[in-house]
């Protein structure tokens, strides 16, 4: 496929870039300086991932069931209103969310996780809801006409067909989460933001890079992993990544 070919060129280009950057970093001594932060980086990557996984995991555990509940026909009348509110919620910038979390809950990892959870929840609920609603009505009619119980209809027909969209929501959500987690440092959460913001404050570019590079790599890795997860989990018959 063309896209794969394009990707191969791109990877080649990226590798070259990384190589050149690497050579430059080595020559100029930046690499050696970066490695001084080695210990901090390790510690903070783990802490950063903890924030992301706890808040993101909670968001998935709350968001998907919430999306499912909102998509039930008995709630149809309230669901649209709820989605409108969620859409407005999604518009609120993440820094503002964290600031609001701080003004209500104070500082520390708790408020940070809460703020991240709210920022992450919205796309998951929205995608779960729209994904389930997009399952064609005739499939649902065929299923209940064949004698499926509502529970069987949900597990065997609705969720498998909506899974790709739901996972896309989780992917977006976690990308936001991993990108917002550095800001959590500002309200007392432990994350790679510590290196970035301190680096900015004391005008220390290497420290900044020591935070920024792992953050960027973390975001790209998580995005890629979730893409992979969608590739594997979503049935071949409805998986846009696996069409012939």
């Amino acid at each position: 496929m063309l896209f794969n070919q394009a990707r191969r060129y791109l990877y080649f280009g990226l590798l070259l870039l990384v190589f050149i950057t690497g050579v430059w970093a080595e020559r100029s001594g930046v690499l050696a300086e970066l490695l001084e932060y080695d210990e901090d980086i390790r510690y903070l990557v783990v802490a950063h991932l903890k924030l992301t996984l706890i808040s993101g995991g909670l968001a998935v555990l709350i968001g998907i069931p919430l999306g499912i509940v909102l998509s039930r026909p008995s709630l149809a009348r309230h669901a649209e209103t709820a989605m409108q509110l969620l859409n407005i919620g999604t518009t609120v910038p993440t820094l503002a969310l964290l600031a609001l979390a701080m003004s209500v809950l104070g500082i520390g990892n708790g408020p940070a996780i809460f703020g991240l959870l709210v920022a992450t929840l919205l796309p998951i609920v929205r995608n779960t809801y729209t994904g389930l609603l997009a399952v064609p009505a005739h499939l649902k009619e065929a299923a209940s006409g064949m004698g499926m119980l509502p529970r069987q209809l949900l597990w065997q027909v609705e969720l498998p067909n909506a899974l790709y969209v739901i996972l896309a929501g989780v992917r977006t959500a976690l990308a936001i989460n991993v990108g917002t987690a550095p800001l959590a440092f500002l309200i007392g959460g432990t994350s790679l933001g510590e290196l970035i913001f301190t680096g900015i404050a004391v005008d220390e570019p290497i420290m900044m890079l020591a935070g920024a590079v792992p953050t960027a790599l973390l975001a790209i890795t998580i995005d890629f992993s979730l893409g992979l997860l969608a590739f594997v989990l979503v049935s071949k018959g409805v998986n846009p990544l696996r069409q012939r």
């Binding site: 990308a175 991993v178 990108g179 917002t180 550095p182 800001l183 933001g193 970035i196 913001f197 680096g199 900015i200 570019p205 290497i206 900044m208 890079l209 935070g211 920024a212 590079v213 953050t215 960027a216 975001a219 790209i220 995005d223």
Partner: peptide, 13 residues
């Protein structure tokens, strides 16, 4: 996909 604060961090140097 690159978080904004990371992008700033990369650009500033």
């Amino acid at each position: 996909t690159i978080p904004s604060i990371a992008l700033f961090g990369l650009m500033i140097p």
